[in-house]
């Protein structure tokens, strides 16, 4: 097995999950609370796009928009010293967009499921919205936060299309397990392909098993998308 690809995949999924939780937490909180108007459905549709869009579309736009053809891309090249495409950082950006709904949607469901009466009681007792979020809402929705992290991680591990478009196939930088698997099959290396595929299957199954096991033991709020 290509251990370099395993290490890279784990690093990519770890970094993506950590960053996406930081972005997704406030976003989910806002979505769970915001009222009427066009903002909420628009943001929801944007967040949900990666669920229905072919990953190659996402990869294509990122490749073009973050490349030297646009001012954003040129700015990034100046900032990083290299283009975002065909680099680890580029994969992180692509993975974050690709896995965004898997991070946000379970948390929106989790926050929305916390009974309003707790927040209302806390606010009449003098607790600020921030204190209510950290002390009441987040602990009560922690099941769905773990679900979000777990799904984001496993989903990023299994990502293929975005990486292919955006990352190419550079060992140690952009050659993830799913790419290594594709390569092995192309080369007729079925033994190697079998090992990589088995490892990916095991990670995905273990992730979902952990999720449902936890639910089975009475942890509330961890809806799967």
């Amino acid at each position: 097995m290509d251990w370099q690809a395993v290490e890279l995949t784990a690093r990519l999924a770890g970094v993506t999950t950590a960053l996406l939780m930081l972005v997704g937490l406030p976003l989910a909180w806002w979505l769970a609370r915001s009222g009427g108007g066009v903002m909420r459905p628009t943001v929801q549709a944007l967040v949900g796009l990666p669920l229905v869009l072919p990953p190659t579309v996402l990869g294509f736009y990122l490749l073009v928009d973050l490349g030297p053809l646009t001012s954003v891309g040129r700015g990034l090249v100046r900032l990083l010293g290299h283009p975002l495409a065909f680099s680890f950082e580029g994969l992180v950006v692509g993975s974050m967009l690709y896995s965004l709904p898997f991070a946000v949607q379970p948390m929106v469901a989790g926050f929305a499921a916390v009974d309003r009466q707790f927040g209302e009681a806390a606010s009449t007792l003098g607790a600020s919205p921030a204190r209510i979020f950290w002390g009441i809402t987040l602990p009560l929705a922690r099941g769905s936060v773990w679900t979000a992290a777990l799904l984001t991680f496993t989903h990023t591990v299994g990502e293929f299309g975005v990486v292919l478009m955006l990352g190419g196939n550079i060992p140690g930088a952009t050659r993830t397990m799913s790419i290594a698997l594709y390569d092995a099959v192309q080369d007729g290396q079925y033994v190697d392909a079998n090992r990589t595929a088995g490892a990916l299957l095991a990670v995905a199954f273990a992730g979902l098993l952990a999720l449902y096991w936890r639910r089975g033991r009475g942890v509330r709020g961890g809806d799967l998308v």
């Binding site: 009466q117 209302e120 009449t124 003098g126 009441i136």
Partner: peptide, 18 residues
């Protein structure tokens, strides 16, 4: 509400379960 200092006991006790 949190700046009014008017604690309210509602019909449902709404104790924080955790």
């Amino acid at each position: 509400a949190h700046r009014r200092s008017m604690p309210m006991v509602a019909q449902r006790p709404a104790l924080f379960p955790h």
